[in-house]
Amino acid sequence: MSSPNQPDLNPGDFASSEINYSVAQGRKVFGNVMTGLVLFCVALALLPLGSILFMLLTNGLSRLFTDFPSVFTELPPPPLVDGGGFRNAIIGTLVTCFIGALISVPFGVLTAIYTVEFGQGNRLSQFVRFCTNVLSGVPSIIAGLFAYGIVVLAMGTFSAIAGGVALSVLMLPIIIRTTEEGLKSIPREVRQGLVGIGATNFQGVFSVILPAALPFVATGVTLALARAAGETAPLLFTALFNQFDARSLREPTATLSVLIYNYAIAPYKNQNELAWAAALIVVLMILSVSILARTLTSRKVY
């Protein structure tokens, strides 16, 4: 019982009475202003994306629909000629990306196997990690100049091979990183089990560990392909461009991204329209491949 000169407080009072939790007006305003500000930031960041996607759809789709099959089956038009398509550029993009993957996938996967399975944090694998990070920061145009220096000058001609080499430099760090992630996601017990049944590292990696990490490897490959499909700068002086179909890998080859560049800066309306249509195709390719990559990683073996 409370004595008369003490404040009349019961434990229950705290629960029932409202605690005076008022924040000073200024602090409240500050909070609301900041919340408004970040929402504005989000809107501002998404605005360009919305605009780009909208323009791609309106400008690209109209062209794709008006001359539907011919866009995919015809060759790029010369200036002031109507119609035309980008058959050779689609093939060229696929071919250069494929060559890039052919070089970078085995290279990247085996490197990741070293750093995770054999190196396990030693000097060399730290060095490889450092180099991978540096390599992923190399500007794409420098990859192009590198391929120009080692392939184009040696072969004496611009070619799809040179384009593929340039792209492989950009794909390599992506593949190394995602493969490393996949290999690390496999529990230690699996490796102990492999040692227990007397498997060599090679047998263990190829029959158990790599198959288990395959979703990650596939993700890395698709992400790398998505990046490579959109790259223009490394192809400018390696694959160059070709108004016609390339008859071999040792010839200048048209690609979608270089076609977009050439036709976007051209003063001809038909070519500009074709550039929008090509851009829509490239973005759709990249998006579908990236979404594929997402679904792949959601499937884990362990």
């Binding site: 780009i52 959109g230 223009t232 977009i260 560049y261 976007a264 851009a279 490239v282 973005v283 990249i286």
Partner: peptide
């Protein structure tokens, strides 16, 4: 994911 050449255009 949008290629730089598309940003340019």
């Amino acid at each position: 994911a949008i290629p730089s050449v598309v940003y340019g255009m």
